[in-house]
Design a protein around this nucleic acid. Structure first.
Lengths: 127, 127
DNA sequence: ATAAACCCTCCCCCAGCGGGGAGAGTCAAG
DNA sequence: CTTGACTCTCCCCGCTGGGGGAGGGTTTAT
């Protein structure tokens, strides 16, 4: 099947699919008269890419996920990639939670400022 | 003071400061022979920008935070901006937590696959 | 008088993920 | 034979936050 068909079946745009190939995420695309030819496996991979993107995998990360040693990943590879991604997400969550705390205490400081100075302008006070 | 001095006092690079001015975050910079002249208020604003960036405020957001109606923000404005940002952070946290759950269950599916098929390759199974 | 130390504008570069469109090739049907 | 539907490559555009450097102006000290 050609790229338009692949686009419909996978849900990715033609532009996106060409980008995936350029980035090495679809290494097995053959050509017929310069037209890219896609197999069902390619469609599966494209769908996988789209799902992985919703989990904030970057395309550049996905190359190592899908082809860990140059060959198509097995499920154990995928599982490891998932747990590594989960660790990153956990770190990001705690980073954001710390931000919330800091913002809270900053907001409290400002509340204090408001009650003390009533109309203190922005740069004059906090020095 | 000129931009080099402002850079040292604020901790922002010269490049960054020029960008802030270009984006309208430092509207009151005057010139002496084409040299930008900075006041202490400008230094304060630059420091504020750097702090806000650590909380994932974008520069484009900061324009509305620092100059809500074209004038320098007062603390009440800042407080509102903070609580709005906190809501966004809260949403982002729950988005990430959902991702973690989904990744967990996906990982469990794969574990199941592994025990059933032992060496199932990536695209053949999950269809 | 000249060198050092500043400053200016302007342009190109990066990541990340494509969108939009030009100009050209290919293919099937009418 | 031509038209329409596909496809190709290639280049420029956006966003965000600058970095790097060219080429040029200014001031200050020696």
């Amino acid at each position: 099947m050609y790229i338009g068909q692949a686009s419909k079946k996978s849900g990715a745009t033609v532009k996106a699919i060409r980008l995936y190939e350029e980035l090495g995420l679809l290494p097995n695309i053959s050509r017929e008269n310069s037209y890219r030819v896609f197999t069902e496996e390619d469609i599966f991979i494209i769908k996988f890419i789209k799902i992985a993107q919703t989990f904030d995998f970057k395309l550049s990360e996905l190359k190592d996920v899908i082809y860990p040693q140059g060959n198509l990943a097995n499920w154990e590879n995928i599982r490891r990639a998932i747990s590594s991604k989960e660790q990153k997400i956990t770190k990001e969550i705690s980073r954001l939670q710390n931000h919330k705390k800091d913002l809270d205490s900053y907001s409290d400081e400002i509340k204090q400022c408001l009650s003390d100075y009533s109309d203190c302008l922005f740069p004059q006070v906090k020095n």
